[in-house]
Design a protein around this nucleic acid. Structure first.
Lengths: 347, 347
DNA sequence: TTGTACGCGTTATCAT
DNA sequence: ATGATAACGCGTACAA
């Protein structure tokens, strides 16, 4: 199976190799006629340049990579779409890679950086638990985007950028809303505190209680299973089901699930227990995914401004690449969206 | 910004280049001590082999590609996961690529085949409207998986494999179920008939009507908008909303949406119109995504056996690559799952 | 067991 | 404007 190469094209056209290369890459100094003829031959031959060889030689490829951890998270679909548009508008090529749960995203980035001659990297999702040492090995600018991050930890850092919402603050906002509706037993469905995102959202919840002089009952803290996807509907269902079946289940008047997917799973468990939403139990989520608008009842949630965040991510990255800007830590405000799934507790 | 290469490692270790190469690739004939020492240096140096250079040379890379069209389709998340596991179990490397809506998946495949020295390709999603001519350019085995395909067209073909459910048959099954419940005005939400998948599901619907001597009213056929994602919740919502607001809206007692996402969007429109599901209007979907189990009400649907299909896809592909089997056209049976969103019409 | 030298397909440099 | 040729980083005969 003889691969057809640029040489074959050159021979067929009776020109030199470099002329063919020029034709392919839209180089300026080439006779339009020669170019046209070469392109015709390429067309009919079905020749396709080998990208590996190109990457090996190329120095100026305007290319950035987006590494996504958690393909199942619908939250990212939207962001990726916008990132693609924005990248294209800026005439950059984009390579999109999904990172498996067991893979280390920085390792993948390191590999990709060499393979594709990247100019910049965006990390979407992931856990943000990388050593400075390892991150230092990346020698192109990179940005962590939409990852829960304790901002106070990172102030003043300039090695990379960070775009996120203040998980703790927003989580507190949601809890305050529920408390002000009159709920006192708000169960929270959350990741184990080892995970930064889960921990931050939990802290916001606790702070809201504390500031009102209320105390969080240990019973109200429901950790998701860590043997399956932490933010899946299934996990929300299983966790809420356990809660509903427990003794404290009867006391609960509201459930705050720390992601919309979890919330939807939780709703199923609540309904199965014969309770109404929000009359018997209020359910709130976090993220603001599209599904929340369509679910029945419509989900009360914290909506992250994904469009703006995605746009800002790319713009900032390209600016840093072009040395038009320094790295930054940017916090976007999220919005509490009250819909149908929450209400006052029964009196 | 000097890239560190295999040469540097060789120099640092005082050995030849090929020795380093042998160490990296776990070659048998190399002194374990030399190997160990080299690996240590690699470790501390942070050297990472350049994949482009490797791909250029390698001939035996056991690697297959999966091209996915329609990243937003949650239907694929599940399949991809299983494909990853199954591929890994067989010691193959996997490259996963998302194909943009405007890209031609076969073109992408052609490019990737050269770049990565692929041994086989899986197409997930996409529209199956490729010329034989173009497909012939691919010179490794490939499989179209879970794409609506008119099987009668393809019997006897041996150039590639095909794994799918019989869209027409399954769609007919769903329609029959609704008709037998007593519904006579079943609205269908479907893609324009130019799209194979939409056309087939539509044909099944029509056939079910015809076989019972019933006639499909033109009013009952609701085409989705083609300026936004055909299978999105939003499109289901907008299309159903138009239906509910039209004159015929009052006659409809059931809506059959040709995907679960569309169905969920449709539910929202029905609820907004002040109707109950399924008491006033039944709503059915197609695909069997996880969300359907969690939605409220739980969605009646046609469930495709994604796990089995994904497994079979990889096994067949690897068998064909190893010349253990010929290409095949395999049709999997889907299952009608009756849940809460459908019931008898009001009398 | 180890090292040398060549080639993979392309682009960049330098002549012409 | 065009062509020859040297890289790019790695794998692998082949020789040692």
């Amino acid at each position: 199976m003889a691969e057809i190469t640029i040489k074959d094209i050159a021979k067929k056209c009776g020109v030199g190799i470099s002329t063919v290369s020029r034709a392919i890459n839209n180089h300026p100094d080439i006779n339009p006629e020669t170019r046209k003829k070469i392109m015709e031959v390429i067309e009919e031959t079905g020749f396709i340049p080998n990208n590996s060889a190109r990457n090996l030689k190329r120095t100026d490829a305007k290319c950035i990579a987006v590494l996504v951890k958690g393909i199942t998270n619908p939250f990212f679909s939207n962001m990726i779409q916008i990132i693609e548009e924005e990248t294209q508008r800026n005439k950059y090529a984009l390579v999109l890679r999904h990172v498996e749960a067991h893979e280390d995203e920085v390792d993948v980035a390191l590999e990709l950086e060499k393979e594709k001659r990247l100019r910049g990297i965006v990390f979407l999702g992931g856990r943000f638990v990388h050593s400075e040492e390892k991150l230092a090995k990346l020698n192109v600018p990179f940005i962590f985007s939409t990852i829960g991050v304790d901002i106070t930890d990172r102030i003043g850092r300039v090695e990379f950028s960070n775009i996120a919402v203040d998980d703790k603050l927003e989580s507190k906002k949601m809890t305050e809303y529920l408390l002000e509706l009159g709920h006192r037993n708000v169960a929270i469905i959350v990741e184990k505190p080892q995970q930064p995102v889960g921990r931050l959202r939990m802290e916001g919840y606790e702070e809201a209680y504390a500031e009102r002089g209320l105390v969080v009952s240990k019973d109200m803290i429901c950790y998701v299973q860590d043997d399956i996807d932490s933010y899946s509907m299934e996990n929300g269902y299983l966790t809420a089901k356990k809660l509903m079946e427990s003794e404290v289940g009867a006391k609960v008047t509201a459930i705050y699930a720390t992601s919309d997917s979890l919330a939807i799973g939780a709703c199923r468990a609540v309904l199965e227990a014969g309770k109404k939403i929000p009359e018997d139990i209020s359910v709130a989520g976090y993220d603001g995914i599209e599904l929340g608008e369509y679910y029945n009842p419509k989900l009360t949630t914290i909506k992250q401004p994904v469009e703006e965040m995605a746009k800002k991510t790319i713009r900032l990255l390209l600016d840093v690449i072009a040395e038009r800007q320094e790295h930054q830590q940017i916090i976007f405000p999220a919005e509490l969206i009250v819909r149908e799934s929450t209400g006052q507790p029964r009196t």
